[in-house]
Simulated assay, not measured.
Amino acid sequence: MREPMKKYTKKVLNDVVSLVNAPRRTATYDVQSAWDALCKTADPASVLKIPRLLAARAEVNAEVERCTHAAPKFSPDGKVAVFRIRSEAQVHPVIATRWAGHFQSKALEVVMVANEGYLEGKVNFSCRIPRCARSRDPPVSIIERLRYYATLTEPATDRGGDEEVRKQELRKPLLERVGDDFARGHAQASGGIVDVADFEELMRLMKIGEKLPKKEGEGGSPAKQRKKADIDPAQKNTLMGYFGKKNTAAATS
């Protein structure tokens, strides 16, 4: 790479990489256009003028912008944020990377973007470590985190009678059922492709969208809590007591 780096600027090479990657991220998975562009040019800078690649990048950028604003849901401990999108384009890794660079949280460790529209009957998801968690000690491992959640089991319910309860108890953990397309990649950028039902089970195991139960005495704004704490339960001089006495005195006079 030394010669190209000397001959072309870093910006030109980065733009070429962006354009060549764009067609495969479109809904049509148009890898042929990218291949043709590379085979037919002797000058990387000329790639920047190929209409099909420019159109593909514009299409992907528009889809990223459309899906980026999905509202996240969090695990009760705040360690995982999940964005659920529906797109035929392969934009979930891009959105995960984008959000990983923006989140600021002391608890957050994993940003997940799940795409329910890329493959029929499947959920493709990408995970990234947010910038705020990259210097944690010990370091965060997305693969370890995903595998941990997938080893958990849901509590058996009594729906369907005793036989159904026994089936649930004998069911293998999710990690043993999802196959090799789960928690692949590396520690800081992982993800997977799983069946819709398996992904929903993963969300339940992670308790996404659930909140920690409030401790006794918690609730309400700090101002209301302070006001409540300042009230003496033994206080007898109430407003109703005052007006009650006043009305009684007026009636007897």
Rank of each mutant, 00 (worst) to 15 (best):
E63M: 13
A56D: 02
D77C: 12
G244R: 07
S126N: 07
V196C: 14
A133V: 12
F83S: 03
K224V: 14
P130T: 07
P72L: 15
C127V: 10
A37H: 00
R66W: 03
A234N: 14
V47C: 05
I85F: 12
E116C: 07
V17C: 03
N61K: 11
D15R: 15
R226Y: 06
K211R: 09
R66C: 10
P130I: 00
L48Y: 12
V16C: 08
K167L: 00
S87R: 02
K245V: 01
V47H: 00
V178L: 09
I231V: 12
P51S: 07
F125C: 13
C39S: 05
R128Y: 01
A45S: 10
H102G: 03
A37S: 03
T9P: 10
G220S: 12
L38H: 02
S253D: 08
K49C: 14
G220R: 15
L202T: 09
C67F: 03
G78V: 05
K214G: 03
V178Q: 13
K245N: 08
R84T: 15
K106M: 04
R184T: 07
D15M: 09
T68W: 03
L108W: 00
A197R: 02
A58D: 11
K236L: 13
R25E: 06
D36H: 10
S33L: 02
E88W: 13
K236R: 10
S190R: 08
R84G: 14
N124Y: 11
C132R: 08
H102L: 04
A96D: 00
G219E: 01
D77L: 13
K172E: 01
G179Y: 10
T97A: 10
R136T: 06
H102T: 05
T9E: 06
A187C: 09
V165Y: 01
E218M: 07
A114N: 09
A183N: 14
Q32G: 12
A56W: 02
V178Y: 12
L152W: 05
S87Y: 04
K227P: 02
Q188R: 09
A37L: 08
A187P: 00
G209T: 05
F243A: 08
P222D: 08
I231M: 12
K167G: 01
D36W: 12
K10V: 05
Q188W: 07
A100Q: 04
D198I: 14
S105A: 09
S75F: 03
G161V: 01
Y8W: 11
V80I: 05
L212S: 11
A81V: 11
V20L: 06
N115F: 04
G78P: 07
T41W: 00
V113G: 02
E216F: 05
A56E: 02
A223M: 13
T97Q: 06
K214M: 02
T68A: 09
F74T: 15
E201Q: 15
V110N: 06
M203L: 12
A22F: 03
P130N: 06
V165F: 01
E120F: 04
N14E: 08
Y8T: 04
G160F: 00
